[in-house]
Design a protein around this nucleic acid. Sequence first.
DNA 1: GTCATAATCAGACTTATTCTAAATGACGAA
DNA 2: TTCGTCATTTAGAATAAGTCTGATTATGAC
Lengths: 126, 126
Amino acid sequence: MKLTPQRKAVFDVILASRDHPTAADIMEHLRNSGQRVSYATVYNSLKYLTNAQLIRELKIGESASRYDARMEAHHHIVCEKCGRVDELLTPLPNEYWQAVTKDTGYDVHDIDIVARGLCPDCRRQP
Amino acid sequence: MKLTPQRKAVFDVILASRDHPTAADIMEHLRNSGQRVSYATVYNSLKYLTNAQLIRELKIGESASRYDARMEAHHHIVCEKCGRVDELLTPLPNEYWQAVTKDTGYDVHDIDIVARGLCPDCRRQP
DNA sequence: GTCATAATCAGACTTATTCTAAATGACGAA
DNA sequence: TTCGTCATTTAGAATAAGTCTGATTATGAC
């Protein structure tokens, strides 16, 4: 009694979407495809899926969190013009981790990167 | 008619605080020091100061934005236990910028890093 | 089938932030 | 000075994202 139909439905929406949908996007998608879900369930599902490591939550400085079903280590890049969020697969060099540990004295668990700029499409149209 | 007394007061609070205060922290600080300000003014001031490049806004995945009066290029590291936010001065190597540009096709304007881990104080007390 | 527990639901609530409309203040022109 | 204009401040209403509540509805174990 874990991956309920609602949770699976939420997961499927995230998997299918190539963008990184927000809770509201997911709600809209589910409603449009004729499923009746409550907001509480969507958020519950997102939390469950995050704990289950099936998705991850992205907080990239917008008001609403986005969700990503790609679980391999990666970062994100946001277009400042059209708002689209792409995967950023460029890995951070190991020396950077080491330098952070050394410079801050922290036990570093995780380093998150959000780049910003103009996406290829928006570069073309000024 | 620009850097009004209220805006200066907000700026001074951020300058004086070694932590990175939220709007609510700033409000509290001002009220405690006997100044009557409205929330709208605090937010207006924060926006003005940000535009004037006197402070910057930090969105590090918490619900509330924090504000930082240190303007030189730098990043942040958050303690997962006590929540404190420290400066992360370790610069990102130039090759990383180049690699991001190459890998994504974006015109990269800015790369933001938020590291997470255990601060030196919290490492000591398990 | 019965029971305990977990998940769902609608809607109320909270928190951070923005908006609104009225009041205040600063400055330049007459 | 007095006026008019326009930016700023204010209190409180409005919004947006997310969480909580209490009642209802599955689900699986027995």
